[in-house]
Design a binder for these strands. Sequence first.
DNA 1: GCCAACGTTGGC
DNA 2: GCCAACGTTGGC
Length: 156
Amino acid sequence: MRYWLMKSEPGDVSIDDLAAMPGQTVDWYGIRNYQARNFMRDQMQLGDLAFFYHSNCDEPGIVGIVEVSHLAYPDRLQFIPGHKYFDPKSTPENPRWLNVDVKLVRKTRLLSLKALRTYPELETMRILQRGNRLSITPVDPREWAFITALLDQPAS
DNA sequence: GCCAACGTTGGC
DNA sequence: GCCAACGTTGGC
């Protein structure tokens, strides 16, 4: 059982979009980075928990918790010519890109990136490191515990 | 919209 | 296999 942080642009799939989806589940499509793909392929297990993070928006930060509800399988969008996520080098026999499904566990209050940066306990988090761009990152169990405790408190 | 950081591509 | 050029990410 591992913990993760998964970024989504709310203009694409927001936490409210996820909450409105059938089964409150979504396929984590569009990952086109090998490191992130490998996390999904090699390390994610059913029931793993992840922070759902809004990126590239007015208030970036953690907005919910999701769980891995389906193991990695080929991302269907890579086979659709003309699609933003089409990859001409990928074939159904040897698919290059994968995704898991995630299911909403709960929405949380917004714990903003700015707020996360104020805690010395979190200064080693991947997401807070300079230049970090990876859209899926592992979260240390201690960091997970610390943040979930924060999420259960009102914003200060 | 700027731009730093970083990943990918492709010529050599 | 090096590395310059280019593309993308994502906070600000």
